[in-house]
Write a protein that binds this DNA or RNA. Structure first.
Length: 311
DNA sequence: GCTATTTGACCTAG
DNA sequence: CTAGGTCAAATAGC
């Protein structure tokens, strides 16, 4: 009988199916990250093992494992309503906006899942923050700084915690974001995760872009005509001036360019030629972009809305 | 004087 | 009770 009772049943099944799909996608992300991990770490074996990427990959894999564990625990019995419902990705698809709605009895409360990134530039995320506290953390040698959005008065609840990474590199920070920005300011000034279409960024011909052992990285970039043809007019970086510059601002602007992200990522992953200098992937400031890139893209690396690479 | 930062006190969850 | 997060008064810089 086609009655009014059918609709809720279908909706419940769909919700369960979406969660199952999410599990499958996260599982796929996990497997892909493992592949990238093996390739990147293998690249870095000479002259020394890459400790930092190793740590970052461990964190990414751990995060994915936890997400899977949580998800699976909520889908053990789709016919009951006793478990919590899960909202994996919010409407705006921003990676830092993931949240869970926990149903406890008749009440429903929202728990924000923080999003962490590892970076050399903890303050350079395009938002305006105001520091409101600092604490020494017991399990960490360094202190943790607490920031909230400057526009809290306008109701923006975004906060972030900045902590120096507990590793050999004293300039590396772990930034944990909580809540989304709801302030108007972000639409004008925010520097979001670049929406990179990897197939646009990377050369059509596999060997067009290549590193030579002692060559300057930007010389290699200049040599790639396909790279520059992606959207010539939008490029703010004058690669030709980079080779001789020591200007930190210029270097950082280059470090933020999509060209470099895509190119270095491709070089690290594909290992085109044996001659890729480790320094091209790992020496500051290039490490800044490659690490941010790896962390962000291996965490959420399959969503076409962001143009994430798919290997 | 205004705004941002510092820092000790206070609050709260585990 | 303890550790971590937040508050708010004091301070600094412009």
């Amino acid at each position: 009988m086609m009655g009014a009772m059918e609709k809720p049943l279908i909706m419940a099944n769909n919700a369960f199916g979406e969660t199952e799909m999410a599990i499958q996608e996260i599982t796929r992300g996990y497997q892909l990250t493992k592949q990238i991990q093996s390739m990147v770490l293998k690249l870095g074996c000479e002259p020394a093992p890459l400790q930092l990427p190793g740590v970052l990959f461990d964190e990414v894999l751990q995060a994915l494992t936890m997400a899977l564990t949580n998800l699976k625990s909520t889908t053990s019995d789709p016919k009951t309503n006793e478990t919590s419902s899960v909202c994996l990705i919010s409407d705006d698809h921003r990676p830092d906006s993931t949240s869970i709605e926990i149903k406890s009895g008749s009440r429903k409360r929202r728990k924000v899942i923080p999003w962490t990134k590892v970076t050399y530039a903890p303050h350079d995320d395009g938002y305006q923050w105001r520091k409101y506290g600092q604490k020494n953390i017991q399990k960490s040698k360094s202190s943790r700084s607490y920031y909230r959005c400057t526009y809290r008065d306008e109701g923006c609840r975004a906060t972030k915690h900045v902590e120096e990474k507990d590793c050999n590199d004293s300039h590396l920070f772990s930034v944990t974001y909580y809540e989304n920005h709801t302030c108007r300011a972000n639409s004008d000034t925010i520097i979001t995760t670049p929406e990179i279409k990897l197939d646009q960024l990377l050369p059509k011909e596999p060997n067009l872009f290549s590193f030579e052992s002692n060559d300057n990285m930007f010389s290699s970039l200049k040599a790639s005509g396909t790279q520059q043809s992606v959207n010539e007019q939008e490029r703010s970086v004058d690669l030709q001036n980079i080779n001789n510059t020591n200007d930190q601002a210029t270097i950082e602007s280059v470090a933020n360019s999509e060209d470099c992200l895509g190119a270095i990522f491709e070089a690290c992953i594909e290992g085109e030629g044996e001659g890729i200098p480790t320094s091209a992937c790992l020496s500051p400031p290039w490490e800044v972009m490659s690490m941010d890139f790896l962390v962000q893209y291996s965490s959420f690396g399959y969503d076409d809305n962001f143009g994430f690479p798919c290997f």
